[in-house]
Structures are given as C-alpha cells and as structure tokens.
C-alpha cells in the first residue's frame, strides 16, 4: 500500500494523545487511593489534558487532509453499524470532548464529590468523566486498529496483533510524554509513569516483533492464477491496459526501493525501542526533562517510520493485475 502521511500523522498523534490522557488519569486514580501524591489540578491535570487535546486536534486536522471532499466529512458518522472508520469518526470527537471536559473541571476547580466509601476515599465528578474517557480511549485504539485489521485480503494487517500494536504504541508514546511532563510539572510521578512507559515499550517490542515474524511467513492466498482464473504454473502479464499511471498504480504500491524499505524497517526498530528505552532510563535516573522529552521525540519519529513500514508492507491482491506496463 502507498503510505499516506495524513494517516501516518493521524494514527501516531491521536495514539500519543490517548496515551497521555490515560497516563494522567491513572495518576489521578492512584492519588485517590493515596498510592501516589495528589497533583496540582491546574498546572498538571488541566495543562496535561490541554497537551493531549492538542495532539488529538492535530491528528484530526491531519485526517481531513486524507479526504477528497473534506467538507462532507460530517457524513462519515452515518454507517457506524458496519464501518470501523465510521465508528472511529464518532469515538474520536467524543473522546476529545471528554478530555476537554476533564481538563476544564480541573481548571475551574469545579469538582463536586459524588460519593465516598465510608469516609476513606471519595469519587468526584472528574473521576467519573475520566473513567468515561478511559473507556473511549481504549475504544478508539480498537477502532483505529480494526480499520486495518478488518480488511481480510490485506493479510499483513488482518490479525489481532494490529489492534494490539496500535494500542501499545499509543500507550508507550503517551506515557513517555507524560513522564517528561510529570518531571517538569508534577510531583513524585516520574518513576511510576516512566516505569509504565518502559513496560509498554518492551511489550510493544514483543508484539511488533511477533507481527513482523508472522508477516515474513505469510503465504499470499491470491495468486495470478486465481486473479484471472487460469490454472497454469507459468503465467505472465504482458500488458496492464495503459501505459502511464492510474489510481491502481499510485494507491497500492509504496514505490520505494527494497533498500529504502529495509532501511525504514531497521530505523523504526532502532528509534522506537532501544534508543527511547536508554534515553528514558537515563532521564528517569537523572530526573532530566530534556532527556525524557528526547526519549519521547525519538520514539515519535520512530513511530512515523513504523507506520510508514506498516503501510508499505501490506501487499494488496489487486497488485497482481498491475505487474507490467
């Protein structure tokens, strides 16, 4: 498939935004149970959710660049019963609204206590809104992943690993950003968030490696024989029916040389996993916001490469019809 930068930025930006929100909310939940220190509502929660919201908005703007007719985008919420893309279109704004509401509650310090358990801990409104946001964040990971995983003839994508990878990459980058943010603004959260960021990165390495191994062993179900319905061991295309490009030759081929393809693969394996892990460990030990931010940015650039490779690796069966001019 041809990697579209609009979709690459959309998926990586909203993934990190969701992860950042989940990290902030996890900190809040732990604080309620006195496991972690309570944070400043304006300086930490409100500002943090603003950053998450900015990432989500940037992703949304990027997604519009993918459309041929962006002015009709509102129509895409119509078919949520059958289309994962339509579901994503509904869940993304709902999640953005929830993040905004959660941040605003903290900013305005309007946080009525809803109920408390025998006076030990209380559940306030932002806790409930945050729980809704958590559900929506995971639903959004599911929708984003399923957009790709539900197309069965794109065999490289049609696996639960796709959803798992999207979720784990989003969590890893979001928690890494949260760690850097907590180091500069928060109190006593760096070890907790940094630990989870490292954990998510390591698990993501396992699941992404699993999908790379799976894809390397894939056997295409469609062959030229099934494509044109002629049973012969030697079939060769002589003409594709036109001499210059068409939508078919632009949309479904990545067009990169095998060397570039391999380079991007090793680039993302390097930039998403070992380099940020080293930078994050050093940053947590030295309590350095600069190092932690560098870890996040390195991983983000790596994720752009990962997403490029994810698209480029998928081999669409229609390519069987376009092998020779």
């Amino acid at each position: 498939m041809h990697p579209a930068f609009s979709v690459i930025f959309l998926t990586t930006l909203i993934g990190a935004g969701q992860g950042l929100f989940l990290a902030l909310y996890t900190g809040q939940v732990y604080a309620v149970f006195d496991v972690l220190p309570v944070q400043d509502p304006v300086n930490f929660y409100a500002l943090g959710s603003l950053i998450a919201l900015l990432l989500l908005v940037a992703g949304l703007i990027s997604s519009f660049l993918h459309l041929g007719r962006p002015e009709r985008a509102w129509r895409s919420a119509a078919r949520w019963r059958t289309s994962w893309l339509s579901r994503e279109v509904i869940v993304l704004p709902a999640f953005m609204g929830t993040v905004a509401a959660w941040g605003l509650l903290h900013y305005l310090a309007w946080n009525p206590l809803l109920f408390s358990f025998r006076g030990t801990f209380g559940i306030d409104l932002s806790m409930v809104i945050g729980a809704v946001g958590t559900l929506l964040a995971f639903a959004l990971y599911l929708c984003t992943g399923m957009i790709y995983a539900c197309i069965k003839q794109l065999q490289e994508w049609a696996t639960p690993l796709t959803v798992l990878n999207y979720t784990l990459f989003g969590l890893a980058s979001g928690f890494l950003l949260a760690t850097a943010f907590a180091n500069s603004r928060g109190a006593g959260l760096v070890d907790f968030l940094g630990g989870w960021a490292i954990f998510a990165t390591v698990v993501a390495f396992v699941t992404r490696a699993a999908s790379l191994i799976r894809n390397a062993r894939l056997k295409p179900k469609s062959t030229l024989g099934t494509a044109i319905g002629v049973r012969h061991s030697k079939l060769e295309q002589k003409s594709q029916g036109f001499m210059t490009g068409s939508f078919n030759t632009r949309e479904f081929f990545h067009g990169a040389s095998p060397r570039k393809f391999l380079f991007v693969k090793w680039l993302f394996l390097l930039l998403v996993f070992p380099v940020p892990l080293a930078l994050a460990s050093a940053g947590i030990a030295a309590e350095s916001t600069g190092l932690l931010l560098a870890a996040f940015l390195t991983q983000y650039v790596g994720l752009l490469a990962e997403r490029w490779f994810f698209f480029a690796q998928a081999n669409h069966p229609q390519n069987l019809y376009y092998q020779t001019v």
Binding site: G68, R69, Q153, L154, S222, F247, Q318
Partner: peptide
C-alpha cells in the same frame, strides 16, 4: 462520497 478511498482498499 467523501473520497476517503477506504472502499478501494477493501476491494480485492
């Protein structure tokens, strides 16, 4: 149609 091209991906 919004021109998202998703249907073209789904068509084998």
């Amino acid at each position: 149609c919004i021109g998202c091209k998703y249907c073209s991906w789904a068509c084998p």
